[in-house]
């Protein structure tokens, strides 16, 4: 390799680094500008709306898709917002809880699932869904930094924060899905007549259960639960942890261990997994873990009793 080749090689590498850095920054700032104006869609809109209204609501719901589709916050009152997001877990919820004003009185409902707590593969990477606010929201940034899910490359190529979300953001920028001012975060599920057969078929499938397996608590999920506990203790809010219904849960061991953990942590927890046991109906279900609007309505009415009780005791 002669000097000329070395020079050319250095030229290619240097130019690529400089150009890619510049392009990255242009795109990153453009996307920041666009995304800050988006208030619809799960990519960023819902998060933007949440950050805007979070301290003005009396009831807030956090959790995954089951929280999102199962808790019809309209039933819980006018001043309620459902911040459940598909594909997220306890890491994502805890980072959002950290953004709440400590002095505001609120009822916080956190939907948790045994899946997070006893799944060895859960690594808290759902928190990466908040990367869009990395270095743009102090409290979210601090959580992301401590999560171990921010790579070194991220600090160089900032557009990585928008990984997988660009199309959704641009689409919602030009054509919002709904009027966000009337949106309360709850997304009901429906089953079309043509899909009912497939749904009934799914519900009939017997799952392989190994209820005798050792339920080892996932340390990452446990750490996040402890973080939520610390957040809850330093605020004026009332926290209620729940697990919403499942179509036909055959293993109770995990639920019992989770109940015990919540008790040890001194956190108020209600397990609604078997809420429909005895009066179940396929119409309540989209699949084995997600309820339709009619199921969600029935369940939220039950949850309302607990919320009213909590309001009285607070």
């Amino acid at each position: 390799m002669n000097t000329r080749i070395i020079k050319e090689l250095i030229k290619v590498v240097t130019m690529t680094i400089i150009l890619s850095f510049v392009i990255d920054k242009i795109v990153f700032h453009t996307l920041n500008w666009i995304s800050d104006k988006v208030y619809t869609g799960q990519s960023i809109g819902k998060l933007n709306q949440f950050l805007q209204i979070k301290d003005s609501k009396e009831v807030l719901v956090f959790g995954n898709s089951r929280a999102n589709h199962h808790i019809d916050v309209k039933i819980l009152g006018k001043s309620a917002y459902n911040m459940g997001v598909d594909g997220t877990g306890i890491a994502y919820s805890s980072a959002l809880l950290n953004t709440l004003e400590k002095g505001t009185k609120q009822l916080i409902i956190v939907h948790i699932d045994t899946k997070n707590f006893f799944d060895n593969s859960y690594d808290g990477s759902d928190i990466k869904g908040l990367k869009i606010k990395y270095n743009r929201n102090e409290k979210i940034t601090s959580f992301l930094n401590s999560s171990g899910h921010i790579s070194i490359i991220q600090s160089f190529y900032k557009s990585l924060n928008y990984n997988g979300k660009v199309i959704g953001i641009i689409k919602n920028f030009y054509k919002p899905n709904y009027d966000y001012k009337t949106y309360n975060g709850y997304d009901p599920l429906f089953v079309n007549e043509s899909d009912e057969k497939a749904r009934d078929f799914i519900l009939k499938i017997e799952d392989d259960h190994n209820c005798e397996r050792k339920y080892q608590v996932n340390e990452i999920a446990m750490d996040y639960l402890k973080k939520i506990k610390v957040i809850s203790e330093s605020s004026k809010k009332q926290y209620l942890f729940i697990t919403s219904p499942i179509y036909n849960d055959k293993c109770k061991k995990d639920n019992d261990i989770l109940k015990e953990i919540m008790k040890q942590q001194n956190l108020q927890y209600i397990d609604y997994t078997d809420f429909f046991k005895g009066n179940n109906n396929n119409q309540f279900w989209k699949d084995k873990t997600h309820m339709t609007q009619s199921g969600a309505e029935k369940f939220t009415n039950e949850l309302l009793k607990q919320v009213q009780f909590a309001s009285k005791t607070n």
């Binding site: 690529t16 150009l19 890619s20 392009i23 990255d24 795109v27 190529y157 557009s159 990585l160 928008y162 990984n163 997988g164 660009v166």
Partner: peptide, 11 residues
């Protein structure tokens, strides 16, 4: 290559 890197970051 820079555009490809950007596409990799975004997608």
């Amino acid at each position: 290559i820079s555009v490809v890197i950007l596409m990799l970051c975004l997608f």
